[in-house]
Design a binder for these strands. Sequence first.
RNA 1: GGCCUUGUGGUCAAGCGGUUAAGACGGCGCCCUCUCACGGCGCAAUCCCGGGUUCGAUUCCCGGCAAGGUCACCA
Length: 544
Amino acid sequence: MDLKALAERLLPGDYPALELYETLYPPRSLPKGAEVTRLAPSPTGFIHLGNLFAAIANERVAHRSGGILYLRIEDTDLKRKVDGAVEAVIKALDYFDIRFDEGAEIGGDETYAPWYQRQRAEIYRAYVKSLIEKGRAYPCFCTEEELTALREEQTANKEIPGYYGKYAKCRNLSEEEIYKNLDAKKPFVIRLRSLGDPEIKHKFHDEVKGEITVPENDQDIVILKSDGIPTYHFAHAIDDHLMRTTLVIRGEEWLASLPIHIELFGALGFPLPRYGHNSSLMKQDGETRRKLSKRKDPELSLEFYRKEGYYPRAVKVYMLTLLNSNFEEWYLKNPEEPLESFPFTAGKMSKSGTLFDLDKLNDISKNELSKLSVSDMVCFLKVWAEEFGTEVQKKYFEEEEKISAVLGLFMGVGGKKRRKDFTTASQAMVMIAYAFERPQNFEEYRVDGTTKSAVLRDFLATYSYPDDAQTWFAKVKEVAAKNGFAAEMKEYKSNPEAYRGSVADVAEVLRIAVTGKANTPDLWTIMQILGDGEVRARLLAAIG
RNA sequence: GGCCUUGUGGUCAAGCGGUUAAGACGGCGCCCUCUCACGGCGCAAUCCCGGGUUCGAUUCCCGGCAAGGUCACCA
């Protein structure tokens, strides 16, 4: 068969010699050990936690080694395209300090552009054409129905489904048959003529998994779809070679197609990049665990974390603790060091699927938030409130001095130790509400109504706004004593029968009356922030 | 079903032939304390199972089992 003529018929026109691409996209001149990694999302919409997980790994590996991280858009499937998706991806990752050195909508070094696969159609076809000429690829005229029928038949016969070996009907079509189909304008795809035998297994070094076994591929996979656009597998081989990727870190769902990629790189005469397949984020679902799914799990969406008001650094720290097992210990020892200083390595990535643990994230989040300065906290909450807050919440920020005082109180600024009350912005905003609004709901008082009123009256009679904290508390103790409560905790504990309760009960009455809550930060400070008039008004209202 | 991957407390995990089997989160208890938060101390809880190899296996080998992934003109 005249393969050259066939190739010309299938992909008519002049294509550049393949050597041209090698010079057009030359090896990068980077220092020794520098890794070139990439993120290659399809423009479906929005990236999720799983993407972020892999993104952080790729970013860290590239930048720790003095290499390059680039963004390539895998838009070979038109059905997946969503407008504005690329910008959204860049923005979302930027929120977590992930910056690309080059890529789609980024700019940077244009040498390896374009980064949209649709714009690289000619390159792919040039390589496909050469594969046809070499007899490593052939046209296939099977219809979708035929393929489905084949699959069903194979499944019914308990055979491995797919287009391979004797099932690859179009693999050995005669020249005559091929041209007949072509003349009849039958649509076709181009398939790889696989030379592999899955019974033959090879050892392979995976940067994450270590030594793994990879069988040879024998599937005649589609490399060029009937619309003339390559499949992912083919584009991956071409692009990662031409863009000079050194290390591909991707989800372990790709492990199963590694045999295909190995054969493709071989057929094209490309050296194989190194691969690292990271385990996926799982979620407990009843008895078993499963991969986090976009549909079922709102916490997978990055938008969820923005809405809840998680501090981005906290999410990143959590991802890093999952990504590198020695990160957590390092961070404990080096709390002041920038995250970038951590010696991240692909080899320390987890081999097994990791259950996503919101409790852990929340703990990290509390710690991160407690490290903020008051002005940073004001800024963080303000930005959150402007987008997600209620109208009332937005007003909290109108009195700059007050919001600072309130947040300083909740963060324990000035004390020996920072408080860790805040987990997220949304939760913090609710927590500080009583500093700005009269409480509507009151937690239950431990004392009876009569006692409550008596305590409040006595306190009101002696309350003086200018009192310092000690004087203020001395007065609370006086009120306690007057109403039959122990003024000193120790005294109460050693002889509880002698009293109706302790100063703690009295303080609780005041606390609930002023804030509605039984648990708050320092009450004296709260009263100082609220001001004389407001405190009196709330106490009065609580007497009933 | 075939193939691949993984298997240490509830969760994340250290370990890499001999350990009282780290640490963190969560849980529980105590202390501190006007409440909470913070902090301190303590407790409970783990090597998937069965065979080998070895003086000795969580660790090495084999076989099970379980979980996950994957088998498209989707990525």
